[in-house]
Amino acid sequence: MEIAPLGDSALIVRVRNQFEDAPEQTSNEVLRALRRIEDARIPGVIGLAPAYTTVAVFFDPLRVMNDAARANHVIESLTQKIHEALSRGGRRKQRDTSARLVEIPVCYEAEFALDLEQVSRESQIHPIEVIDLHRAAQYRVSCIGFTPGFPFLSGLPKRLATRRRSIPRKEIPAGSVAIAGAQTGIYPMKSPGGWNIIGRTPLHLFDPRKDPPALLRPGDRVRFRAITREEFDRAAN
């Protein structure tokens, strides 16, 4: 496992070099590394954030220096502690693979599915079948980013992979469910973006007044459930 500096106040722990070859296993390994580093409560570490193949470790260099290390040993000292944490078994081992399953209601009706035609054209699959494939699959949150609460989901049926729009939209409505490349995702709030929109959820994926503020967490399993326009309106109000 490679541990490399990310500026002078963070480190990146590279758990694997590839993601697409084994998304499930990679996610498990990343989450396991995350929990072990979390459990180690390393002095000076102020935050952790997982991504596809990595865990970012944010630290306060001054606190690390106060704690143990001289300026020329900050990284060595942290790296050593992270390695120790990673090689430790950890009491929360069983929890590693038991992720939550979250069901997301999605209205796939034409009014919301702005790019369903495009996805259908590129994949040569009838729009109704596109929707069936999209909602039948099970997904997993690889990471949260782009905007607060935006989940990048792996597990999209290969046949649905669609290139990003060549000209991104200036404004994508909040709740839009979209496809880009081999991934699907949900725009928590109105924002610009280039993904192909195939539906909309009435759920709020990000609410700064809640703790945690994001509906989904890395590692969560996700399913989409098709709802009608009426159900969408009821849920949205």
């Binding site: 952790l48 954030a49 782009f146 607060p148 990000f206 945690p212 503020p213 890395p218």
Partner: peptide
């Protein structure tokens, strides 16, 4: 905001 990067929240 320091502890919320895992939810995509900027510092």
């Amino acid at each position: 905001r320091l502890g919320f990067r895992q939810f995509g929240v900027s510092v």
